[in-house]
Write a protein that binds this DNA or RNA. Structure first.
Length: 621
RNA sequence: GGUCCUGUGGUGCAGUUUGGAGUGCACGCCGGCCUGUCAAGCCGGAGGUCGCGGGUUCAAAUCCCGUCAGGACCGCCA
């Protein structure tokens, strides 16, 4: 039906008679003797010249047969890759008419997302979505290649799984053959992949769809995709290495797609897409930056600053950034002011820990903004927030603050020094339990320093040694931070009985610019250790058998030491695409309330179907 | 479950603070003109339940209450 793609036509094709197919991006008519039709397909846009009038409209589907020719002098279009040439002597065949699109496909337009989702099939025709979907495909292909090259075996695991009362809420699927019983859709292939290790697969991966019935966010959909990995006979460093190769391969592939490889999706559609705000929000990763990162992550390059990729323990991350997923693009870190205020008369500072944060230039913040910060701190669980505007000059500092008159000169100078503050800065401080103080200031740090995803470069870090347990759950029992099969840190095994909350684990996260890209752990493979963890969690033997029987059973038949990881593909692609939310890299996402404006899902089931599934009829009213 | 933002012809906005006629801008759409445009240009035209419901008022896009939808976040979540 076609001989060429629109976006590939160049001067080398001059003289060739070609046939291209696509959608009418625009039509420019100059009376009855001359008309221009810009034809668009997924590779780009080419100008077709019709000697006469032509009955086509925007978004009609047409085939154009024409002769490639150089454009007359002075009519080249430098905004188009095909701008040196055009199709002349065109014969236009209308393959299908189309109603005017419900919103402009032009990249400059900024359309309400609900409308875009309702007509997603039209939205996908736009350059942005074409580019994002191709970027995603290229990154997934690169990850597959990286895993294959490292000797991993791709295995599919069931979508119809068994309920496991652990972790996230699950989507339930009623059984037609066993009324009253349910399958669930997997939150992740976690248990299945561990069984594959028992099965001797040794190195497993899967581009796996995961489903969690939890409230949606900019970075969370009901269904999302993970590069799921599990490996036998490994230590954490082996997992880091395997994951790093896949992630850096994906980022390098993204750089190639985005940074100059052919075809360049951004050239499709309208000319001059660079002028659009939407286009400017995207980041273009130059290939050399991706390779620089690759060198960093694998440790194979010496000429890059060490802080591009860092490894932090969970405790360090909390202490310095107040979160387990630090955005390292923000230079400010939390500082400990406990020593400064150890003997303070300020009652508010008499707490286990006083932490501070410098906000450069923050002395200019108005009272409203400051009150807002105080409210925010309280909402996050702090008893209050102290703020100090630093004024004066070095050697003669003054503080502007409700608390200023209660501070001694020594305290004032020590605080300013500890915070690294200078006149014109703001210092905020929280006195509380260590974790609360860190988390509150961590949230404020993000609020004060947040930047668009496409700015500030890419700052990857591994966060390691997460706590094994994460406080007390609603039933008064200890809760597993990761999942109950996470291996305790070998140095902390003795604390399992005495001080479980202090036990570190061999669980780790990969974090990029404040986004949690993935997480994993070394798993428990020995029954005695597993029993001690269940003991600490308050899970009786019978209960453990009931909930995880088949896994524990499998572990009795020769479980190798193993561990793994899962990379959030949607988030990785979104970051590479410079998108603020993952819906932009998913073809058919759900809205925040979990609906699909295009299909109308979720919808009621008919009475016959309900009966077959053994479900009660829908209540009326 | 909660906090905040948004909702005005097909699209994107202004108008809402301080109530006074559905007023305006840009794009698109329809018709006409136009032989080198490329976000074509020029002329004309059509198109509105100001998300929905209630209240206050002589009068509501505007103020109040409720509700729905979309989004950001908290809770929740590997």
């Amino acid at each position: 039906m076609r001989t060429h793609l629109c976006g590939e036509l160049r001067a080398v094709h001059e003289g060739e008679r070609v046939r291209v197919c696509g959608w009418v991006a625009r039509r420019r008519e100059h009376g009855e003797h001359l008309a221009f039709v810009d034809l668009r397909d997924h590779t780009g846009l080419v100008q077709c010249v019709v000697d006469g009038s032509v009955d086509v409209r925007t978004e009609w589907v047409v085939a154009v047969e024409g002769t490639v020719r150089g454009r007359p002098a002075g009519t080249h279009n430098p905004d188009l890759p095909t701008g040196e040439v055009e199709l002349g002597d065109c014969a236009v065949t209308v393959l299908n008419r189309a109603e005017p699109p419900p919103f402009p496909l032009d990249e400059r337009a900024d359309t309400d997302e609900a409308t875009r989702l309702r007509y997603r099939y039209v939205d996908i025709r736009r350059v942005r979505m074409q580019r994002n979907l191709r970027l995603r495909a290229a990154m997934v292909a690169a990850m597959r290649r990286a895993m294959d090259d490292q000797g991993f075996c791709e295995v599919e695991t069931p979508l119809l799984w068994t309920p496991t009362p652990e972790g996230a809420r699950e989507f339930a699927v009623p059984s037609r053959l066993h009324h009253g019983d349910f399958y669930v859709l997997p939150q992740s292939p976690q248990i299945a992949k561990q069984l594959l290790m028992v099965g001797g697969v040794d190195r497993y991966y899967q581009i796996a769809r995961c489903l969690r019935d939890e409230d949606l966010r900019a970075d969370r959909q009901f269904e999302f995709t993970q590069l799921d990995i599990e490996m036998s006979f490994v230590e954490p460093a082996d997992v880091y290495a395997a994951v790093s190769r896949a992630v850096t391969a994906a980022l390098a592939a993204a750089a190639r797609v985005d940074g100059g490889g052919a075809p360049r999706a951004r050239d499709a559609g309208s000319a001059g897409a660079d002028r659009s705000g939407a286009a400017n929000r995207r980041s273009e990763v130059p290939a050399d930056e991706a390779y620089r990162m690759l060198g960093q992550i694998t440790g194979s390059s010496d000429d890059v600053p060490d802080d591009l990729v860092v490894t932090l323990t969970w405790r360090e991350a909390m202490d310095r950034y107040g979160t387990d997923k630090p955005d390292l693009r923000i230079p400010q870190a939390l500082v400990d002011l406990s020593a400064v205020f150890a003997g303070s008369e300020v009652r508010a500072f008499q707490a286990p820990v006083v932490k501070g944060l410098r906000h450069p230039g923050g002395a200019s913040l108005g009272r409203n903004r400051l009150d807002g910060l105080v409210d925010q701190a309280k909402q996050l669980g702090a008893k209050g927030l102290a703020w100090f505007k630093v004024a004066g000059s070095v050697g003669d500092l003054q503080l502007e603050s409700p608390l200023a008159k209660f501070l001694s000169d020594a305290e004032r100078d020590a605080m300013v020094a500890a915070a690294g503050a200078a006149p014109g800065d703001l210092v905020v401080a929280v006195a509380d339990e260590w974790r609360t103080a860190c988390e509150v200031l961590g949230a404020l740090r993000l609020d004060l320093g947040r930047m668009p995803v496409s700015e500030g470069g890419r700052r990857l870090c591994w966060v390691t040694e997460f706590p094994l347990f994460d406080g007390i759950d609603d039933d008064g029992r200890l809760a597993a931070a990761h999942h109950p099969f996470t291996m305790p840190h070998p140095d902390d095994l003795d604390l399992l009985g005495s001080d479980p909350l202090a036990v570190r684990s061999l669980a780790y996260d990969l974090v990029l610019n404040g986004w949690e890209l993935g997480s994993g752990s070394i798993r428990v493979h020995r029954e005695d250790v597993q029993r001690r963890i269940f003991d600490a969690l308050g899970i009786a033997v019978e209960e453990a058998e009931a909930r995880f029987g088949f896994l524990l059973g499998a572990f009795r038949y020769g479980a190798p030491p193993h561990g793994g990881f899962a990379v959030g593909v949607d988030r990785l692609v979104a970051l590479a695409a410079g998108e603020e939310n993952i819906r932009e890299v998913i073809a058919f996402p759900k809205t925040q309330s979990g609906t699909d404006p295009m299909t109308g899902a979720p919808k009621p089931l008919g009475p016959r179907q309900l009966r077959e599934l053994g479900l009660p009829p829908r209540p009326v009213g």
